[in-house]
Design a protein around this nucleic acid. Structure first.
Lengths: 230, 230
DNA sequence: TGTACATCAGTGAACGCGCGTTCACTGATGTAC
DNA sequence: TGTACATCAGTGAACGCGCGTTCACTGATGTAC
């Protein structure tokens, strides 16, 4: 696997010195939490996992040991706060998923026109994906994670992005200006289009991309144009 | 990692009995190749890697040892034919990449109308991706592999898909019926759209997808409609 | 026609590594008497 | 106000595992004399 990673130097598997161990001789230990502050380490673990995810850009590179090193505790200490590694990663990504939905909601808050709402929400989705590529990757570019347990849990919390998008599509259809009349099919189409741009950009950074703002605009506008009645 | 895999049972890490070891007691050994037949094992290794890639659906699950077991030889024997694991995987995926381009070429062979050529080529790309999801994943959904060495090598061989697509876009623009006049931007838009559908379908199989033929048609037609002058 | 010998196509055992996780423990902290 | 004690928040060492890769070897196969 070392060879595979070396093939294409996206990220180092070792933790950067600035984060892990400023001292050369020994890893600095964080002070033990006070009696009631048991949850403080939990938060620090979540933050460290987040940091590692961003730094390495690869879930597989985030090991329990690496997280522990960043936090400044030992690996077993993590198991005092999470039943296993999967729960830890799920928690980290769930946080970011909620943030994605919130980001889109905020972006369209002041828009009234249904078609423009659609356009803005897709643009916001793409923007968020490109801003947090590592989280986007965990959420939407890897099998397993977020599927299907957490996904369902988030849907029940009423913050599922696709449900909200279907809703927005329905409103756009109601204006009478759209070719397609099935809001679900329309939502899936918009989602896959946005996902294609984000994910391909993330996975092929060395591809000769045109200016990104122009690329996003062309992709989104072309799709929206195609949805509108001629 | 075992826990992570168990979270979402896409594929078993162990080789299915029908392929690996029909006998209960011992792994059957393939007969040693004759003097001049040294390359026979090479082909068998490539085929076995392909098989494992499809069975497990995960490059990381394809270990040198697993390949050896399927072939019926020992792990070190693989190093007689490939310098390392990366070269082996690169070879396997390169074969499939050439096949993808060939598949698209064949699909549009008898079409004369430039816009319909565009439509058909994108549809063929999506179709291929959904038919060989594991290879598509290796080629376009994982960082590192195919980047940038092999990609460049294939481009030089004149079989790069994006180059051909840009060419087809130019022809479509030449008809005078398109809104966009930059063939490269247009090609990237079409590619990302197709990629979005294929990759999201692969990575989220449990999502409540509409009928796939209908989904493909809607996505492709919407995009093409959006490209055409109103 | 027989035999010594180079070579080809592998094998078997082992290397060091990092992984997730478990288990027995420790030492500071707060609390009850 | 002092002290025994339960508990909380961890530690340190070790487990078994699978990985990519290396190295010394072996035994069948073809060839030269």
């Amino acid at each position: 696997m070392a060879t595979m990673t070396a093939l294409y130097p996206t990220a180092s598997r070792t933790v950067s010195p600035t984060v892990s161990a400023p001292s050369v001789t020994a890893t600095p230990r964080r002070p033990r939490a006070k009696r009631g502050d048991g949850d403080r380490l939990r938060d620090e673990i979540l933050a460290a996992t987040e940091t590692l995810l961003i730094q390495t850009g690869d879930v597989d590179a985030v090991s329990v040991r690496a997280v522990a090193e960043v936090v400044g505790c030992t690996a077993p200490a993590i198991y005092l706060h999470f039943v296993d590694k999967a729960e830890l990663l799920l928690e980290v990504c769930g946080i970011r998923y909620r943030q994605l939905n919130e980001f889109v909601r905020t972006a369209i808050a002041n828009i009234t026109d249904p078609v423009e709402t659609l356009r803005a929400s897709v643009r916001a989705y793409i923007q968020f994906g490109l801003e947090y590529p590592q989280h986007y990757r965990v959420l939407f570019m890897q099998p397993g994670l977020m599927d299907p347990a957490l996904w369902e849990a988030l849907r029940l919390q009423g913050i599922s992005g696709i449900d909200a998008l279907v809703d927005r599509c329905s409103r756009a259809i109601a204006t009478g200006g759209m070719r397609e009349t099935d809001p679900y099919l329309m939502a899936v189409g918009l989602w896959t289009m946005a996902h294609g741009l984000v994910s391909l950009r993330i996975v092929k950074p060395r591809f000769d991309w045109p200016d990104m703002e122009r690329t996003i605009q062309h992709a989104v506008d072309t799709h929206i144009n195609g949805l509108l009645r001629p």
